[in-house]
């Protein structure tokens, strides 16, 4: 951030100069000023009082450590940038050659994009998304379908009970009577 700032506003222009038009018209500056001011104050507006899930104002804690730490780190960062880039000098290059790997990593944004792509495309899509989708289609849905199919095939296997022969029907009938009597007399007495 601050490398950008110093390079643009503090360093001498390199070879070619743009036609410089001052800081621009008020129509451009005003929104910037408003946004800038608001971004400074916005943190102090107790939003939790206005947007709450319950209708009652929520409570807000200001955790000091939590607020100071980022500010401190920010200040340190600004200081380092000031040292390196405020005036054009060799310090930055020197440090860069000394910390070759780190600088390169930082230059490539610590390979965040590559890692991100790797994690999403290779890891999440293939290792989580695909199995989840497969599991859903085959195991969960398959189980639900299997419930239905088993019922249907079970009913198919029962079909022989209904043979169309009256003598068999009579047999089932008498078996039913005897069976029920036995259960009724010996089990449920």
């Amino acid at each position: 951030m601050f490398r950008l700032y110093y390079n643009i506003f503090w360093n001498k222009q390199d070879a070619h100069l743009h036609d410089f038009h001052g800081e621009g018209p008020i129509s451009m500056k005003l929104p910037l000023i408003i946004l800038g001011t608001l971004s400074i104050v916005v943190g102090f507006i107790p939003f939790a009082h206005y947007i709450t899930p319950t209708g009652k104002p929520g409570e807000m804690h200001l955790d000091l450590m939590f607020s100071i730490a980022p500010v401190l780190i920010g200040v340190v960062g600004i200081a380092v940038a000031t040292m390196f880039y405020k005036s054009q000098n060799e310090k930055a290059d020197k440090v860069a050659t000394q910390l070759n790997g780190l600088y390169k990593a930082a230059y490539r944004k610590f390979y965040i994009d590559e890692v991100y792509l790797f994690i999403t495309k290779k890891v999440i899509f293939n290792l989580i998304g695909r199995p989840a989708a497969w599991f859903d289609r085959n195991i969960v849905d398959g189980f639900m379908n299997a419930l239905g199919n088993t019922t249907v095939s079970f009913s198919a296997s029962l079909k022989d009970m209904q043979s169309g022969k009256v003598q068999e029907y009579a047999l089932y009938f008498i078996a039913g009577v005897i069976g029920l009597s036995l259960i009724g007399i010996y089990l449920w007495m």
């Binding site: 999440i124 899509f125 989580i128 989840a132 989708a133």
Partner: peptide
């Protein structure tokens, strides 16, 4: 979570 991941592959 599982619905979200399953959506990824649709």
């Amino acid at each position: 979570i599982y619905g979200a991941f399953a959506t990824l592959m649709q």
